[in-house]
């Protein structure tokens, strides 16, 4: 046992090895829990999407693909800087850990800013579910798919379900990002104090796992929510 930094070894663990094993296993079980948490939303999405393919495609075409793609790139980049921060924490390179953490947080905030503009756009166009929800199928689409007036009405209702799912999924995802940014800021203090090294870096590692998980969710949200309208409407 390395007695030099025994303050970071909790008393009920026998060794740093055991503490690290327990910590990362605990984090993975937590992520399994997160998978099922988002899984409920993905299940709802799958059922409605398979039942209302065209309706969802039409609703989806109201999302902003360039902004969605930009956010995907931002998150992937932040995953990279996060992975580097974990690497530097193992190597106990204090300044590099702090630097990469800051980069990660800046990218995370960038994502949230883009998301803010996207949400604002939805509020402007009243595509936020609720009493003021308004959605109109474009005349070209009605002509293209030869939709009856009743069909247009159901389509507008299904669009509200799509946007409900959109706001639930991206909202919970954004909430996870906000929490992540909070944890990241809190981690800066031990990072600056040089607490992390080969034996003790679980906080950074677990934060990294959490951050990557949030990235993973977005990797699925982006095609499912943004892209499935692209072909249906461009191809016709």
């Amino acid at each position: 046992m390395a007695n030099g930094h025994s303050t970071t070894l909790h008393h009920h663990f026998e060794s740093y090895d055991q503490q690290r094993n327990a910590s990362s296993l605990g984090m993975w079980f937590f992520l399994a829990q997160e998978v099922m948490f988002f899984g409920g939303l993905f299940t709802a999405y799958m059922i409605y999407r398979t039942q209302n393919g065209l309706d969802f495609a039409v609703a989806s075409s109201h999302l902003n693909i360039p902004l969605g793609a930009l956010n995907t790139a931002i998150l992937i980049a932040s995953s990279f800087t996060m992975a580097m921060a974990v690497k530097k924490s193992v190597l106990a390179q204090r300044k590099a850990i702090v630097g990469y953490l800051i980069l990660t947080l800046i990218l995370g905030c960038g994502f949230l800013v883009v998301k803010y503009f996207e949400y604002a756009e939805k509020f402007e166009h009243n595509t936020v579910p609720g009493s003021s929800f308004e959605f109109h199928v474009e005349p070209e689409l009605i002509a293209q798919y030869d939709l009856s007036p009743e069909r247009v009405v159901t389509m507008e209702k299904r669009a509200e379900i799509f946007f409900s799912l959109y706001f639930m999924m991206t909202g919970l995802h954004a909430l996870h990002m906000v929490i992540g940014v909070g944890i990241g800021i809190w981690l800066m203090f031990p990072a600056m104090a040089g607490k992390f090294n080969m034996d003790y870096h679980n906080p950074v590692e677990n934060f990294g796992l959490y951050w990557h998980f949030v990235d993973l969710v977005w990797i699925f949200l982006f095609p499912l929510l943004y892209l499935l309208g692209g072909n249906a409407l461009a191809g016709g």
Binding site: I65, A69, T72, A73, I76, A77, S79, F80, A83, M84, K87, V90, L91, F222, P223, L227, L228, G230, N231, A234, G235
Partner: peptide
Amino acid sequence: VSSTSMYLTILGALIVLTGLTVWVAFQ
């Protein structure tokens, strides 16, 4: 400890795949 170049490779692959998925959505 993974090498930085490996992380960069993964980063590149992910960005390329993002571009690909956007492009293919319009085919």
